[in-house]
């Protein structure tokens, strides 16, 4: 690994514990609003833990540090998850968690660059992050800046044609500083992603577009660490994709077993129950 050590990466706190902290903060934000995309947040927490506490170089007190790795949240509705990671990383103060989604909060329900330190782009119009990532990767190369661009997108975004334009472009331009993370939770607004517009065989698609492809259990921290390291260390002049199979609501079994939808309903009395389940299973 060539990345710069940061306070976060030097901490003794385990990545499992970081993921737990991210899940806990997301549930607390969900409780503030009485709603939210907590299913996605719980599912992606392990990926964000490995991103922010293993892979990414950044400075918590200087979110626009030129040497930082750029982390793009193409899926704006996952903001609840990224805010949790940014709080855990020390980029956002924890007390702002209480304002999630409220009028004039810096933490709107859909992530926007103008609102939040550490939020690189305005996502939410799905299918745009990877293309912006191509441009940032080109720009970093033009500036001879060795930083990497990580674009986090959802399996639903694989339906957008713009994703595949960007995929072809990234390979054409040999963007070996671009890592695309696909959260494959197989859920989108109307149902299972594979029932809406099937993207399988997904690894073969990316490979045929000229990408280095890995597919891992996105809730297995050791597997994620290995995949992120391999993506970073690869010598091939090609962009890298890590397809992460994740489970919606991971870590809170009674929510995992619920009929899962894009927008998981959590009743008013269930937030504390969900937190209690997490608290009973706190990793070291």
């Amino acid at each position: 690994m060539t990345i710069q050590a940061t306070a976060a990466t030097l901490s003794n706190m385990s990545l499992a514990r970081r993921a737990w902290e991210i899940r806990r903060k997301a549930l607390r934000m969900g409780e503030v609003q009485g709603q939210g995309y907590v299913g996605q947040a719980l599912g992606i927490a392990d990926v964000l833990s490995v991103s922010y506490f293993h892979a990414l170089a950044y400075r918590p007190d200087e979110p626009e540090w030129e040497g930082r790795d750029r982390f793009l949240l193409s899926i704006g509705h996952y903001a609840i998850a990224l805010y949790s990671a940014l709080i855990e990383a020390g980029i956002l103060p924890e007390q702002e968690l209480e304002t999630y989604g409220m009028d004039d909060s810096r933490l709107p329900m859909s992530g926007m660059a103008a609102y939040t330190p550490g939020m690189e782009i305005t996502g939410g119009s799905l299918g745009q992050g990877l293309g912006i990532g191509v441009g940032m990767a080109l720009g970093l190369k033009a500036k001879k800046n060795p930083a990497f661009v990580y674009n986090l997108m959802s399996d639903g975004e694989l339906g957008e044609g713009s994703t595949w334009e960007a995929a072809m472009s990234a390979a054409h331009h040999k963007l070996d500083n671009l890592v695309c993370i696909v959260d494959f939770n197989d859920q989108q607004a109307d149902g299972k992603s594979t029932d809406m517009l099937c993207s399988e065989p997904l690894g073969d698609k990316w490979a045929s577009f000229g990408w280095h492809v890995q597919r891992v259990d996105g809730n297995d921290i050791a597997a994620l660490v290995a995949a992120f390291d391999a993506a970073r260390d690869l010598k091939d002049a090609k962009p890298r994709v890590i397809i992460c199979d994740t489970i919606m609501c991971k870590g809170v079994p009674f929510l995992e077993q619920r009929e899962i939808t894009h927008f998981v309903r959590v009743e008013a009395d269930e937030w504390q129950k969900a937190l209690a389940v997490l608290d009973a299973n706190r990793p070291e």
């Binding site: 503030v32 702002e96 209480e98 304002t99 989604g101 409220m102 009028d103 004039d104 909060s105 810096r106």
Partner: peptide, 9 residues
């Protein structure tokens, strides 16, 4: 930021 419990959601 709005105070917890205040402000529209």
């Amino acid at each position: 930021p709005p105070k917890p419990g205040e402000g529209g959601r």
